[in-house]
Design a binder for these strands. Structure first.
Lengths: 259, 259
DNA sequence: GTCTCACAAATAATCGATTATATGTCAAGT
DNA sequence: ACTTGACATATAATCGATTATTTGTGAGAC
């Protein structure tokens, strides 16, 4: 036991004397902080992760369906190696599942799954937001306001999917930047995952009717509470926002499940 | 947009008419419920996941170090494909990180990381335990008692690593079974991940001195509170247990960081 | 009719070799 | 001496082909 590390194919990090190293590497997230891990991505596998995530979140890949590697491989014009690697990485995002020797499948949707996502979002995002309000600095406040403005500046046109995607992107950015001040990378990752899963329900089951006027107001409310450092108010607004969306989705989903 | 699903290489789940399917597939976890995803694993990639996880949790793979694919490949006598896939899956467990074109590295350790793990465990496990107590049935109670007995029946002999591993395994099982009644698979997964990360700190930095007599008592306390359906008591005990371990680890870790 | 087994087709998993990218080294220039 | 750039080496990423496993199908037994 406990051989020299080199014997196991690992290279001690630079500047570490023997056992330990404390490095500031971003966990799982690439690119600048606050970016929803959307950056271009240099490798095929990374680009595949982005494309497949989008395909799943948009509903293009049916929830619960099996993923035929050969067909996807041809579709995206890649080899199996990066495809399998990308799918394996999507497990971390909660978007695909794997059964040994039976391949990958798109994460299914269900009422109970939606309920859990909503409940956990309430808990996790409240925790993150209150921590962010306690720890965040002026730069964070500014970022929140920027993201809010950016999102509210995008008009969602149901006829133009590009605007929908752009808004979804800005929306996720807003929520993640709001929480990013909490200085808890693991928690942020969990929140991002839940957000992704929630987005799928919204995009697949909530045919974006343009007149979501109150949503913009809700977001503003949350942001104002945050920059005013009013943790109670901000968290209550955020909770209400999440629960409202959740209830809305639950109705739509149960409609579509027993038609 | 929104082509026929078949065009994108996906196969609609059996029994689904057109868009939806609600299946009971276990998320990310293989094997019977309560098993810490430790089952043999049929594919090389799955076996690699288990072996690499053990290597990381035991500290055999130095925290923060880069992983040289060629060396590991030879070490474990596999090809690159399953190795990369296994590493990609370990991202989901929080044990490795990836930087495009710079390869994989073992997740680093730090005081702030430990602090976050401890804090999130307190939050998440309290939530899960109270939900489990509210929702769990007699079968769940019995499982908890079984896991408790199993764990307390294993004597940890510092001279024999096999006993240490066996206890770690039983310990993780106990904690996960305790929470398993909560019927929130996503939350359970988060708890499992945090538990894994915490285990590494304990195994690497806490040279198991055998006389951890109070730990057994703490576990019994939690279990008794759980089966007695005393949510307050059980959660308080669990919280105290987590915080005690966390404080203990913090001391050891900061000692080793500045020797 | 239905159950079981054997076989065939489909698909998942893996391998060995190749290509692309990053890292280290050294010479030329300032 | 220090920087810059070109080259060589090391390593990560990808490919095309092969192997292993599962799934579908049909013949035969009961």
């Amino acid at each position: 036991m406990n051989n020299a590390p080199e014997a196991l194919g690992i290279v001690p990090p630079p500047g570490s004397r023997s056992t330990l190293a404390v490095r500031p590497i971003t966990l799982t997230m690439r690119g600048p902080p606050g970016a929803g891990s959307d950056e271009a991505g240099n490798t095929k596998a990374s680009r595949l992760v982005d494309r497949l995530r989008e395909a799943i979140l948009s509903g293009e890949l049916t929830p619960g369906s099996k993923i035929n590697l050969e067909i996807v491989r041809r579709q995206f014009d890649v080899s199996l190696s990066p495809l399998r690697e990308a799918l394996a990485r999507l497990i971390a995002l909660g978007l695909v599942e794997l059964q040994d020797n039976r391949g990958y499948s798109v994460a299914p949707v269900s009422l109970s799954n939606l309920a859990e996502i909503t409940r956990l979002r309430v808990e996790f995002e409240s925790l993150a937001l209150s921590a962010a309000i306690a720890a965040g600095d002026l730069k964070w406040e500014s970022e929140v306001m920027r993201a809010l403005h950016q999102m509210n500046g995008i008009a969602r046109d149901p006829a133009d999917p590009a605007t929908l995607r752009a808004w979804e992107h800005a929306h996720r950015d807003f929520h993640m930047i709001l929480l990013a001040g909490c200085a808890m990378p693991l928690l942020l990752n969990f929140c991002l995952m839940l957000h992704n899963l929630n987005d799928r329900y919204r995009r697949v089951f909530l045919i974006a009717r343009g007149g979501d006027r109150n949503v913009a107001a809700e977001h503003s409310e949350i942001a104002q509470g945050a920059v005013a450092r009013d943790s109670e108010y901000a968290c209550a607004s955020l909770r209400a926002h999440i629960l409202r969306t959740g209830a809305n989705l639950r109705t739509r989903l149960s409609d579509q499940l027993q038609p």
